[in-house]
Simulated assay, not measured.
Amino acid sequence: MNELDEVTRVLFVGLEPETVDYSDPALPPGLDATKIHAGIALGMQLMAARGWRADLRLVRPDETAAVAVERQLATATYDCVVIGGGIRIPPKNLSLFEILVNTVHKAAPNASIAFNTIPEDTADAVARWLKAE
């Protein structure tokens, strides 16, 4: 928990659902932007239910992603940053994933970095690192 505001701050970073290639075989079948948006909303609700203040930063899979995340990280002291499965799982996003991990590492060196598998398990990913079950 950060000392400034005594509430756990979480940043959830994911791809804009409309930019995801849902035909990628690395992703679970049946996903679409509507399901991802619903999952994100549920993930955010689950974090709020644990008493955490969670911010969402959706990025595009291009050179603007790191800048957007760096700007977001400058707005608050985050205890944990979750990088979503849509960034981490597809092999074609490896470069983007590396860029974002290093952006978080540099811009928020005291924040834990966690990874979800689906938006709905974001709170569980945070809890693993905050040990706040």
Rank of each mutant, 00 (worst) to 15 (best):
A132S: 10
G14Q: 06
P90N: 05
I89H: 01
I36Y: 04
P25D: 09
T75G: 09
E133I: 06
E6P: 00
N102G: 12
S95T: 13
M1W: 01
L100C: 10
D21T: 13
I36R: 01
A66E: 14
I87M: 08
T103N: 09
A125C: 10
V101S: 04
S95G: 06
M47T: 03
V104A: 06
I118M: 08
N2A: 06
R60A: 12
D121W: 00
L73W: 07
E120D: 12
E3A: 13
D55K: 05
V7Y: 00
H37F: 04
T103Y: 13
P29K: 15
G86L: 05
R71K: 08
A132P: 00
F115I: 15
V104L: 14
A48D: 04
G14C: 02
V59E: 05
T64Y: 03
E18T: 14
W52K: 07
F115D: 05
F97Q: 07
L31K: 03
Y22W: 12
N110V: 01
N110G: 15
D5H: 01
P61G: 07
V67L: 13
I118A: 02
E16N: 10
I99E: 13
V104C: 07
V59D: 02
M44E: 02
I36H: 02
T122I: 09
I99W: 05
P91Y: 13
C80Y: 03
T75R: 11
K131G: 14
M1R: 00
L130H: 04
I113F: 11
P90C: 09
A49D: 14
G85C: 11
F97N: 13
A125V: 08
Y22F: 15
N116E: 13
E63K: 08
D5Y: 07
N102W: 15
G85E: 07
A107C: 06
F97T: 09
T122P: 00
A125I: 01
T77N: 12
L46N: 14
E70D: 14
R53F: 00
V69G: 03
A127V: 08
R71F: 02
M47V: 04
A123F: 00
M1K: 01
P91V: 12
L94Y: 09
W52M: 13
S112L: 11
V69I: 10
E63R: 08
P28L: 15
A48R: 07
N102E: 15
V101H: 06
A76V: 06
P91T: 08
N2H: 11
R53G: 06
T64F: 07
V104M: 11
D24I: 09
K35Y: 00
K35E: 05
A108L: 12
R9N: 15
I40L: 04
R128T: 10
T77W: 11
L4Q: 04
L73A: 05
A123R: 05
P61S: 11
T77G: 13
D79Q: 06
F97E: 09
A54E: 05
G39L: 02
L100M: 04
T77H: 12
A65W: 14
T103W: 13
K35T: 03
E3R: 01
A33N: 11
V101M: 07
A125R: 03
A107H: 10
A74Q: 15
A54H: 00
A111G: 08
P90M: 14
L4R: 11
E98V: 12
E133Q: 11
E133L: 14
T19F: 02
P28A: 15
L11D: 09
T75I: 01
D32V: 08
G51S: 01
V82A: 03
G86S: 10
K35N: 02
A48Y: 00
E18K: 11
E70F: 06
